[in-house]
Design a protein around this nucleic acid. Structure first.
Length: 252
DNA sequence: TCATTAAATTGTT
DNA sequence: AACAATTTAATGA
């Protein structure tokens, strides 16, 4: 199980810092344990920390009054979130909740702002990170509108292995089928069926309480129509010809 | 180390 | 959605 120090040391921005800078980060960033369903950030509450996931899983969700909640993305270990809020807003613009028992790293806002003021390479990291997150969200909107449940599950899983966002290297993610359903906006039963289909196609292997990705590129470009799954460019959201047209009006 | 049990997760209808 | 089966983790001899 990863430690706070390892998470800091292995983060994408750590190499860019001087020893002095990293030392301050190490000294002031504290670890926090959050039980399953524990709230890490609540919408409209002050944002005082930049948050990294050491172990466990955090979901980012939004809720509209009267319309329930929607989970947007899951942040696996090695992922950091909240920089957008720290850069522009004083309060959280989303809820962040631990999906299961989770350990997070909390970097005080002052330290984050200090890095941004003093480190050019940290700013390079930020640009890259924000771009990767934007790309993820564009992809999310895109396949949410164009693709069916099966492909949504595949691409949702693929999005948890984007190297620019989550530098951890293992291809295993602890994610129950219930959690897959939450993150992909499908029922648990549908997640169950989708996972077995993906396993049958050799893209992943189902394990108890989690899964192992065998073909990340295949998941990234997944469409239910096997014949047309030749597009290998993650930034294009090509829809399979003749499928899911009923939901595509907003993009035409 | 092994058996027992409760809880979590998965499989099926 | 409900229920059964399976796996894991915790407990104690």
């Amino acid at each position: 199980m990863a430690t706070l120090y390892e998470t800091l040391r292995n983060s994408l921005w750590a190499d860019a810092l001087s020893e002095e800078q990293f030392e301050r980060v190490r000294a002031e960033t504290r670890e926090r344990r959050v039980a399953a369903d524990g709230v890490i950030a609540r919408i409209d509450e002050p944002a005082d920390h930049w948050i990294g996931v050491i172990d466990g899983l955090v979901k980012i969700c939004v809720s509209l009054p009267g319309s329930g909640v929607s989970t947007l993305v899951g942040v696996p270990p090695s992922g950091w979130f909240g920089e957008g809020t720290l850069l522009k807003h004083r309060v959280w613009r989303f809820d962040a909740v631990a999906v299961r028992d989770t350990r997070i790293a909390c970097m005080p806002r002052e330290v984050f702002e200090w890095l941004q003021r003093t480190s050019l390479s940290f700013n390079h990291f930020l640009v890259n990170h924000l771009n990767a997150r934007l790309s993820q969200i564009i992809g999310l909107v895109c396949y949410d509108r164009l693709l069916g449940p099966q492909a949504r599950v595949a691409r949702c899983l693929a999005s948890m292995f984007e190297k620019d966002l989550y530098p951890r290297t293992d291809m295993v993610v602890r994610l129950s089928q219930k959690e897959v359903g939450l993150l992909s906006a499908v029922s648990r039963q549908r997640a169950h069926a989708a996972l077995h289909e993906l396993e049958r196609e050799g893209l992943l292997r189902i394990e108890f309480g989690g899964l192992k990705v065998l073909d990340l590129a295949g998941l990234r470009c997944y469409t239910p129509d096997r014949a047309s799954r030749s597009v290998r460019e993650p930034d294009t959201c090509a829809a399979p010809p003749g499928s899911a047209h009923e939901r595509s009006s907003a993009l035409q």
